[in-house]
Design a protein around this nucleic acid. Structure first.
Length: 294
DNA sequence: CGCCAGGACGATG
DNA sequence: CATCGTCATGGC
């Protein structure tokens, strides 16, 4: 089973489909057997089999630690759940997708992707990023007829004009992306060094970028740096918090933030992702039921 | 077709 | 601290 092109990650309670399609990463696409994507500069195929997640590349690998890190294959979900406070809503969310995981993504791709995410549906974010990778990303070796590109470097995007970026349909986010790319390319923002900072300091640094507020900063701190207490609040999470903990009342965003940081102190990241998945599915079912009743 | 989307920002109560 | 208008685009 294990040669230099394939590797099996032994995992338990790992819902690969939910993890790759839940809106934390945007480039994975399903095929007949599993999922194809590009991690850093390598094309990868992933398939969940009974004995674990089987990964395949088209170039030989000497070790697979980079992919184990990305997939967070070592995480014991039981100990994550054990840190949650007793909470019927959260328990219901976990029951729906117990194997939902947080990935550990490359920082620049994560930051750039979430700069492009503001007030966009996940499907549209995927389209923008795909276009961006086709236009500016380096091709990577992949089997089959389809071509795959790496996520474009900060240097390359900093060299692009705003008009070129807008051609990828990112609209008013173009200058934000360009400014962030320049900051990284010119060394004013060191994304490696950012990983050494504690949560609050790292968030302060990220929110200095225009187009990066607390929500997007929290996404990067959670999905790229693994800060367990980052709690991104988007319209879905805000909806979930109001519905589950405030009887549907119109609670303003700053109050939701303090509520979440106190309630899920130290374990907000995973709690948030379960709630996100839960409220979106629940809302989808409700909308469908309403439509079919008319 | 109108509403809304993994928001941020600046101005104004 | 809270609210509001604006930004660009297109899926549903």
């Amino acid at each position: 089973m294990n040669d230099r092109f394939t590797h099996c990650f032994k995992v338990q309670d790992y819902d690969l489909a939910a993890t790759l399609s839940c809106g934390q990463a945007f480039r994975w696409q399903a095929d007949a057997e599993g999922w194809q994507g590009v991690v850093a500069n390598t094309w990868v195929h992933l398939e969940h089999k009974p004995d674990g997640i089987v990964a395949r590349t088209c170039e030989p690998q000497t070790d697979w630690q980079w992919l184990a890190d990305y997939l967070q294959a070592h995480i014991d979900i039981g100990s994550v759940l054990a840190a949650f406070p007793a909470d019927p809503n959260l328990q219901a969310a976990v029951r729906g997708h117990r194997g939902l995981r947080l990935l550990r993504q490359p920082a620049w791709e994560c930051l750039a992707s979430f700069i492009l995410s503001s007030t966009k549906q996940i499907i549209q974010i995927r389209q923008i990023i795909e276009s961006l990778c086709e236009q500016f990303g380096e091709p990577v070796a992949a089997p089959g007829p389809a071509s795959f590109c790496a996520f474009p470097s900060a240097r390359r995007l900093a060299a692009a004009t705003e008009t070129e970026l807008r051609a990828c349909k990112m609209g008013f986010r173009a200058p934000y992306l360009r400014e962030a790319a320049s900051a990284v390319a010119e060394g004013q923002l060191n994304l490696d060094q950012l990983g050494q900072l504690p949560y609050a300091a790292a968030r302060d640094r990220l929110t200095q970028l225009s187009g990066v507020g607390e929500k997007i900063a929290d996404c990067v701190l959670l999905f790229a740096y693994g800060h367990a207490d980052a709690f991104p609040i988007d319209v879905w999470i805000a909806r979930a918090l109001r519905q589950f903990y405030f009887r549907g009342r119109c609670v303003p965003l700053p109050r939701l933030r303090t509520f979440a940081s106190e309630r899920w102190h130290g374990c907000g990241g995973y709690a948030q992702q379960y709630l996100f998945q839960y409220i979106r599915h629940q809302h989808g079912k409700t909308a469908r039921a309403v439509r079919s009743s008319h």
